[in-house]
Design a protein around this nucleic acid. Structure first.
Length: 191
DNA sequence: AATGCGCACAACCGCGCACCT
DNA sequence: GAGGTGCGCGGTTGTGCGCAT
């Protein structure tokens, strides 16, 4: 039986400065890598569920986050990556230093999607299907040299400490595959 | 000034996966 | 292998703010 994800007696809604500070202090003193999100709220004296704490930290409190508007080149990259990866926001965000999946997702939904629609461009494939299909196929099928999208996104071990995806280890062959570079090369070639 | 509306963004929820016992 | 638990992801909802009426 799965317990409810969040206790109904916990705080909900916007975080206060005090709550933010408690969370920051706790993580700074214990280290992000050692944090157990499920027990953190009690340990840090927060009336929040662990998931909520994690989300707050990941999306807004981490010191390496870049706040503010997206630059034109970032927007461009999001559009290209979305054409390639679809709604894989965490993967897309992993390509944008200092940006989070939530931020990218919101930006897409509020800005880019409308922009593409107003330009008469299909928001799902951006009219690029004919270019992207071979690349997607090669990513998924060429198991010896690259990973399928599912494997890249789901391979926990490939995640670096800052939440980005670094090298991906090929479990079947034991090789290390630089999925970042692979994606760069493919984007260069394809778009 | 009051209120209604739309937009942007913060936060929540439910699910799937990985890991552990 | 089965069941429980924690984490991460993507979709959706809630909230606050600015603008128009």
């Amino acid at each position: 039986m799965r317990k409810p994800s969040c206790d109904i007696n916990k705080n909900k809604g916007t975080w206060s400065q005090e709550e933010d500070q408690k969370l920051i202090d706790y993580i700074n003193s214990h280290g992000e890598a050692k944090v157990c999100w499920s027990t953190l709220p009690q340990a840090a004296g927060l009336l929040r569920c662990g998931k909520s704490c994690r989300l707050r930290w990941m999306n807004y409190l981490r010191p390496d986050l870049k706040r503010g508007n997206f630059a034109e080149d970032e927007e461009d990259l999001i559009i290209k990556l979305h054409a390639l990866l679809g709604n894989r926001w965490s993967l897309i965000a992993g390509r944008l230093p200092g940006r989070t999946d939530n931020e990218v997702k919101n930006y897409w939904n509020t800005h880019i999607r409308k922009k593409l629609i107003s330009m008469g461009i299909d928001q799902n494939n951006h009219g690029l299907n004919h270019k992207l299909a071979p690349l997607q196929n090669s990513l998924i099928s060429n198991n010896s040299k690259s990973f399928g999208l599912k494997e890249i996104s789901k391979n926990k071990a490939s995640k670096t400490q800052d939440g980005n995806y670094g090298e991906v280890s090929n479990a079947s062959s034991g090789e290390d595959i630089e999925s970042y570079d692979l994606l760069d090369i493919n984007l260069e070639l394809t778009l």
